[in-house]
Design a protein around this nucleic acid. Structure first.
Lengths: 339, 339
DNA sequence: CTGAAAGCGCTTACAG
DNA sequence: CTGAAAGCGCTTACAG
């Protein structure tokens, strides 16, 4: 069933059928009505490939998400889609494997779907090379700064990871904590984890605190199980910790469960804080002390920046969004008896 | 940049270029090499629309997800994608608004992308009419039975909601509970909630228990906040409840937090159980007693069924997957002093 | 192994 | 307002 069949059945030419399909006003009411009838009768759907081939048209905004397990991404994604729709762009989500090269995948997706722009959620820094410019469309990295990539078509929106981690560390220190454990991502691949760790370290050094990273920083996946196992390793390697900083809320949940399974209570025995500020964090018992990355605000800024790049050919920008320290119930003041 | 430009630059015809693009063996090594060079030089990507227009080719399997907030869907989705990839199909995820008509959206998506098949996660039963057959491809509804829809191209894979809810209710009764509250979805739109409620009711009536649905069944959205507010309403309407059955784990988390905020502990004061069996349920404190819907198993069966329909034109089937009652720490035995 | 040509289903000036 | 025709970029028999 093609436009030709419709034309024949309706007794008009293909051009006229095409016009009614495209809401072109230059069609007589009776022609329109008759053609609409036939279209309805056969539930005709014009071939999009042919249509696009002619129109050379693009397709909204592609969102490439690395890993389906990240709840922060899920939250940001919802907001991104809402913002895109509000701005009149359709959006398309592509989940790719955590081990895939997102830039290669983006090239494939651009070739197939010709989006106006591409948004990345999650990234391995090493993949973001100048090859990205060959995509030929504006790109945006979410929740992760790409300022130091210096790729001309790549913008980014994120919180200042280093500063946020430092802020949380300061908070814990102010409450009397001195013996820290950290559960974060793998430093060679997770840029945000590296930034957050350096934020923590800067506070430690300012406070004159020793921090044996080899035993007190545990690298794990950003999952419940990662947090759980990471906490178990911390308990082995430095059972004296009074405060554990998990670099994601999900990891923090895993860590809290591990502590409980080892007979320790949060926050009475050990304080635990997270990072992300998921809605979930606010419903846990204890409510999680965490750094909130404002998903809606980030999405709003991200889409706005990307659209300026698309429509006006604006230059890439790297924007930092204010984070927020959320005080929950998972962190307690400590009286350091040793001091 | 088109195949024609490449052909000219390489000194061959477009046919030959097309052949190397498609790995057709009928190309001399030197032609292949030369053409590949030129392709590489310009980073040429063939136009997918043109390609598809010619090949009339389809595109893997479309997954239409209603609402981005459902964690069970997120889990199932991951498994579905893995299964599709393993079977050699690419997959594409389309999130649609909770208020959208998923069948209309599916029609649009089929017209645009011509998938081999469509998988629905989440549904309003009323939208699943015989219009679905006009999609012309096999469809599959996940986590929700479509047996009574009797649509010839629609299969489904789900647990037996009624039986699962009855099983959980039996379990609670066996532990001595008599005063129940239920937090579920809106019965007019959520088919699974209706089935689960009827499972509960069947046990109540078998046990000779009165259940005033108007006050003891609270309808809410399947969200943390829905669970929280639902629990608050239960506390108002029937403060005597000893056991609360939430029809999703996420709702259960919200309910537990609400109880805590009203000075009640779980499970010491009130028992709470969920439904879904998310990985998260196993990391909460207390671990959640829940019905596990085996995401991996369901995805495996779903994809296998859909592929048989696609490849062999097999008839739609409606398969029930065994659920599992997971005993966590959120439910306690009760001594009914009144008896 | 290669090229010229037809055709996929549509849109859009162009001429009427 | 309408139709005939060109052409979007590719693939694929067909003939050599």
């Amino acid at each position: 069933m093609t436009i030709k069949d419709i034309a024949k059945e309706a007794g008009y030419g293909v051009g006229t059928v095409s016009r009614v399909l495209n809401n072109n006003p230059n069609v007589s009411p009776q022609a329109r009505q008759r053609i609409l009838e036939v279209i309805e009768k056969y539930h005709f759907q014009p071939n999009t490939n042919a249509r696009r081939l002619k129109q050379q048209t693009a397709q909204g905004i592609a969102m490439i998400v690395k890993g389906t397990h990240n709840m922060l991404f899920a939250q940001v994604l919802v907001e991104l889609q809402a913002q895109c729709n509000a701005a009149g762009y359709s959006s398309m989500v592509y989940y790719i494997d955590e081990t895939d090269n997102e830039v290669e995948q983006a090239a494939r997706i651009c070739a197939e779907h010709k989006p106006y722009g591409v948004i990345f959620l999650g990234s391995h820094r090493e993949h973001f090379t100048h090859e990205l410019t060959q995509l030929g469309v504006p790109c945006l990295l979410m929740t992760n700064s790409a300022a130091d990539c210096a790729i001309e078509n790549l913008s980014s929106v994120s919180v200042d990871d280093m500063s946020a981690a430092a802020r949380m560390t300061d908070h814990l220190c102010a409450l009397g904590h001195r013996d820290f454990g950290i559960i974060g991502g793998f430093l060679d691949t997770s840029q945000p984890s590296a930034a957050r760790l350096s934020g923590c370290l800067s506070v430690f050094s300012r406070m004159g605190l020793a921090f044996e990273a080899s035993s007190r920083y545990v690298a794990a996946r950003y999952t419940l199980e990662g947090g759980y196992r990471g906490m178990e390793r911390l308990l082995e390697q430095c059972p004296d910790v009074t405060a554990v900083f998990a670099f994601s809320d999900i990891m923090a949940i895993g860590a809290i469960r591990a502590l409980r399974d080892h007979g320790l209570r949060v926050p009475q025995d050990v304080s635990v804080c997270g990072f992300d500020g998921l809605e979930l964090a606010d419903y846990l018992i204890p409510r999680l002390t965490t750094i909130r990355q404002p998903a809606q605000k980030m999405a709003e800024r991200g889409v706005s920046i990307l659209i300026r790049c698309i429509r006006e050919g604006a230059e890439a920008v790297h924007e930092l969004i204010p984070y927020q320290l959320v005080e929950g119930e998972s962190v307690l003041t400590i009286n350091n008896k040793e001091e």
